[in-house]
């Protein structure tokens, strides 16, 4: 299982002309591999992640995940791709406030079609693994910031995606929680054997990853260890 990215470009069209954000990104990752991407704000790293996750379309380029090309898919197929192949963790947890923690985790499964009892059990397991077994029936408003993000992580994994993406998942958390979340992500990545790509602006957190790359002005390059 591999992820192949070829010459991804993206431009934003504004009133004063076009603004290039991604300028030809290439990447290869095998499964079981994890990657941290660093860069300054506005460098395009979030945009790249969105493209990988099927949340945004590039101007040109190709992506292949296990032989699937999301860029060539119809809107419906792309939705399935997002649902089943990708798990996304946002900076703001984006949990739905009207559902309980368990229901939030189950939400992706409603949209896809998975046998019910099986998935409920899986959800409960996941929540246990992220340490929220006692908070299953609570509403997001009753959780702390760190707990919410952990719930978001559980949600991202409920469909056992091949690609787990996290866009500054610790941006709103304090140092201790941040480190916990990162470690959690890595641990679950190892257990699930998926591809994990995390965007972060923290050097300390990036150091936790075996491979680090840097995005600068739309170009992705291997980070030099001294940075």
């Amino acid at each position: 299982m591999t992820l192949q990215v070829r010459q991804i470009r993206k431009e934003f069209i504004t009133r004063s002309g076009s603004l290039p954000v991604l300028c030809g990104i290439d990447l290869d990752l095998d499964s079981d591999k994890s990657l941290a991407i660093m860069g300054q704000s506005g460098s395009g790293k979030s945009t790249f992640l969105h493209v990988l996750g099927g949340l945004d379309k590039p101007s040109s380029g190709k992506i292949l995940l296990d032989g699937l090309d999301p860029l060539a898919m119809s809107e419906t197929d792309l939705a399935h791709y997002r649902n089943q192949k990708v798990g996304f963790v946002f900076q703001d947890h984006h949990l739905l406030p009207q559902c309980t923690v368990l229901e939030n985790v189950l939400l992706p499964s409603l949209l896809g079609a998975m046998p019910k009892n099986e998935v409920i059990q899986l959800a409960k397991d996941l929540l246990a693994r992220v340490g929220l077994e006692n908070r299953m029936d609570h509403m997001p408003s009753e959780l702390s910031g760190g707990e919410r993000q952990r719930a978001a992580v559980a949600r991202a994994l409920i469909m056992r995606p091949r690609l787990l993406l996290a866009d500054e998942p610790t941006g709103n958390l304090d140092k201790r929680n941040a480190e916990n979340i990162m470690r959690l992500l890595l641990k679950l990545h190892e257990e699930e054997k998926n591809i994990l790509i995390v965007v972060t602006h923290s050097v300390d957190l990036a150091k936790l990853f075996p491979r680090v790359m840097a995005m600068d002005d739309g170009i992705l390059a291997e980070a030099l260890s001294s940075n």
């Binding site: 949340l55 939705a79 399935h80 990708v86 996304f88 739905l96 939400l107 992706p108 949209l111």
Partner: peptide, 12 residues
């Protein structure tokens, strides 16, 4: 947007 991101189709 979140629900869409989680893999719901526009139709859904």
């Amino acid at each position: 947007g979140t629900v869409l991101a989680l893999g719901a189709t526009q139709k859904q």
